[in-house]
């Protein structure tokens, strides 16, 4: 797969405060990469350097092979930045805002009009396009803010906490459109401090705290990194101790024990284990009445890595 973004060894200090310390990551085409971290972790600072808005003290950024520098516009056309704070004109309409930024991205004429209409459709604001954005609800403003980043079909879309302060409905619409864009092959860099968003959207996640990437990988990699196991809880009847002993003999099972109403199984990969576990149970004549899978989440990983909880 082609690498769209390569950030290497990014450092940024504000006076004495080290905001970003040796951050490196790569994002491939069609991949969604999440920067997960609490307030003040250095997410926005990292993103500003990636987008060429902030000169790193050291380190490099390449987008589609082009170095990104603050004093050059090279490579900017490949990037769509959606800032954390709303950056739209309140005294222009939604369509006018889109048209304005479209022109700054070098689009014009019919191409621009067509694309503005498409994006309005994607962000669900077609019927409100001629209203001033200051009359929009918070969620609608946020959707427009996001839509501006999509206009020029960037190869890298950067979303800095795109769901902050948004009602659940808008939030879902935003997450869905991110999934859809990812399906179209766009590389997405996504920051959030919502664990469940990172889990739902991101192919890979970097956990960042105090300017340092503490760990990086797929959710599964991160979870196994900290030794957390999936837990399969089976409600069953019969000789529970015997069933547990049989299950413990299966490959992939770390531990199996009998509980009051069934069996508890610890494994590094519940989804892979489940079919063989089920056939093992039926072969020893267990009557199964329920199965529950508990996967350890990023919250637990974060807690383990940093000793603190994510906000919210």
């Amino acid at each position: 797969m082609t690498t769209v973004l390569a950030a290497e060894g990014l450092n940024k200090k504000f006076d004495d405060l080290v905001a970003v310390d040796g951050v490196s990551f790569e994002i491939a085409e069609g991949e969604t990469f999440g920067l997960l971290g609490p307030n003040g972790a250095g997410k926005t600072t990292s993103i500003s350097m990636v987008a060429g808005l902030l000169e790193p003290d050291s380190g490099t950024v390449h987008v589609a092979g082009t170095p990104i520098r603050t004093n050059s516009t090279d490579g900017r056309a490949e990037i769509g930045l959606v800032p954390q704070e709303l950056a739209i004109y309140p005294d222009l309409t939604g369509a006018e805002n889109l048209r304005f930024f479209g022109r700054l991205y070098g689009m014009r004429g019919e191409e621009l009009e067509k694309r503005v209409a498409e994006v309005l459709e994607v962000i669900g604001l077609t019927d409100r396009k001629d209203d001033l954005t200051r009359e929009y609800s918070g969620g609608m403003q946020r959707r427009l803010n996001n839509g501006i980043g999509l206009l020029h079909r960037p190869r890298l879309l950067i979303l800095d906490e795109p769901t902050v302060g948004v009602d659940p409905q808008s939030r879902n619409a935003i997450l869905e459109s991110v999934e859809e864009l990812s399906g179209q092959g766009i590389a997405i860099l996504f920051t959030t401090h919502y664990m469940e968003e990172a889990e739902r959207l991101c192919d890979r996640v970097a956990i960042i705290d105090q300017g340092v990437i503490q760990a990086e990988g797929t959710r599964r990699e991160l979870v196994s990194l900290v030794g957390k196991k999936d837990r399969i809880s089976v409600t069953a009847g019969g000789d529970l101790t015997g069933i547990a002993r049989a299950a413990a003999g299966l490959s992939g099972v770390t531990e199996a024990s009998a509980s009051d109403h069934g069996i508890e199984v610890l494994t590094s990969d519940a989804a892979t284990l489940l079919p063989s576990l089920m056939s093992c149970f039926s072969s020893v004549g267990a009557s199964i009445t329920g199965v529950q899978i508990f996967e350890p989440n990023l919250e637990a990983v974060f807690l383990h890595l940093t000793g603190k909880a994510l906000r919210d």
Partner: peptide, 14 residues
């Protein structure tokens, strides 16, 4: 203040 200027800078505009 609205960050629109900054956003303009993120586009290929000098």
């Amino acid at each position: 203040k609205l960050g629109v200027s900054r956003r303009m800078l993120s586009t290929p505009t000098s």
